[in-house]
Design a protein around this nucleic acid. Sequence first.
RNA 1: GCGAGUGUAGCUCAGGGGUAGAGCAUCACCUUGCCAAGGUGAGGGUCGUGGGUUCAAAUCCCAUCACUCGCUCCA
Length: 510
Amino acid sequence: MANYEDIFKKVVAHAKEYGFVFQSSEVYDGLGAVYDYGPYGSELKNNIRTYWWKSMVNMNENIVGIDAAIFMHPTTWKASGHVDAFNDPLIDNKDSKKRYRADVLIEDHTAKIENKIEKEVKKAAKRFGNSFNQEQFINTNPRVLGYKEKISAIMARFSKAMENDDLADIKTQIEELGIVCPVSGTKNWTNVRQFNLMFKTQMGSTADGANDLYLRPETAQGIFVNFLNVQKTARMKIPFGIAQTGKAFRNEIVARQFIFRMREFEQMEMQFFVRPGEEIQWYEHWKDARIKWHHSLGMGEENYRFHDHENLAHYANAACDIEFKFPFGFKELEGIHSRTDFDLKSHQEHAGRKLQYFDPEINESYVPYVVETSIGLDRMFLTILSHAYNEEKVNGDTRLVLNIPAMLAPVKAAVLPLTKKDNMPEKAREILKELQCDFNCQYEEKDSIGKRYRRQDAIGTPFCITVDHQTLEDNTVTVRDRDTMEQSRVSIDKLHSIISKKVDIKNYLQ
RNA sequence: GCGAGUGUAGCUCAGGGGUAGAGCAUCACCUUGCCAAGGUGAGGGUCGUGGGUUCAAAUCCCAUCACUCGCUCCA
């Protein structure tokens, strides 16, 4: 395991050293859980996005794309459930290190008092036998009344504190009630804090009169609110899908594992709208289609697995993850969820507008069910980078190579004059010019040829094209393969097709 | 938020009270010319930040910040 961690460390260091990923705002000591993509990183990221887009949107005639804004009407997040689900006041016990929802602690406490009432009732029932009038007892017994008063006093104070955002009072209340941690049994509590999943900001240039907005925590809602727009304008018939890539933001509590978990990240999502009752069949369809997409990259089928969700979210009736074997273990890479009609229905209610589809085949209107595929672009990036990173032994020496799927490689070919003399640089630049238009290429003349090969290996360039003396005579060059290190001599006019053959997306899309 | 660790050159690290070091990398020139590490030279750091102790602090003390790991959290 330590070995895996070492490899992961090396991957992270490599990502920085070779301009793939930098820590955000590094000159200011960094910003937690935020990263920037460098020259090669941004190329790789673009290539991954393009591959996804082509295979999802361009290769499926019933899927179209959109690009929705990051800002959305605040009610969107009420409808999606994000506002309510993440307003919980949280408190930690310093001894057990356990975190609790403050409202749950207080509710548990009142539940205990309720139990006491029940006990009183049972006792009384025994005592009075058949003549026992439970209702009367509860309304008159001084002890029971005392308990009830206690409960309502607690709840009243708690609600008031919540309304006023008086977190300090909630803590005081927990202390005064003598609530102890169920694990450690102590009253050693931290302050009550609220963790917001969503980033809040303001729209409007003046502070007063500005509206609170959120940076979207998921891209899906941009698709749902545009459901009718897209369906009508692109004349889509169910079943059909809407895809989009874009940034999403989450105020997570801590940062871990490099770009695996970021506050600002990019999603590649597709929401597929289907007839109610057919969602599970489509869910299976997309599970299959998506795992095939992953396998198409040739990074080892054994490195992927499905993980079915046991606890389904409020909106889902089936859900699974595709997990990839990262250096730190199998982790979620993509989610496939059958989201039912929850989202569209909820928007329908909150917006007061019908979000329905008239299905001419069955002559009926309904709110479509949705099957979602949602993959993290940054996670996909990490998948590729960590899988591609290899240290090979070559003649007692270590070769560091990124075996990135050729189609995704940031640079497809490097054109290298063997020496800086005898017109070789000029010839090499001629070749570069020829290839540049179709492939991202590099020209390099510094250092020994071997050194240049290794530098290209380190950024995952599939081809190195070397111009030598013979080139000037017969227009042939050597082409060196990244993965095998083998060289072959080919004529310059074959270069285009040799590179194409390996890097064309067509070879990967089935 | 708790606990632990780390912060010295672009990278990896050494140094441990007395005016900053190595290797690699970078740049220039020379040399070589098909798989890294040839030669000569150069640039680059007030040792995370602030304060304290001291004649003197990168070094000791305190605080603080950032990062890493574990816990917590992660529709």
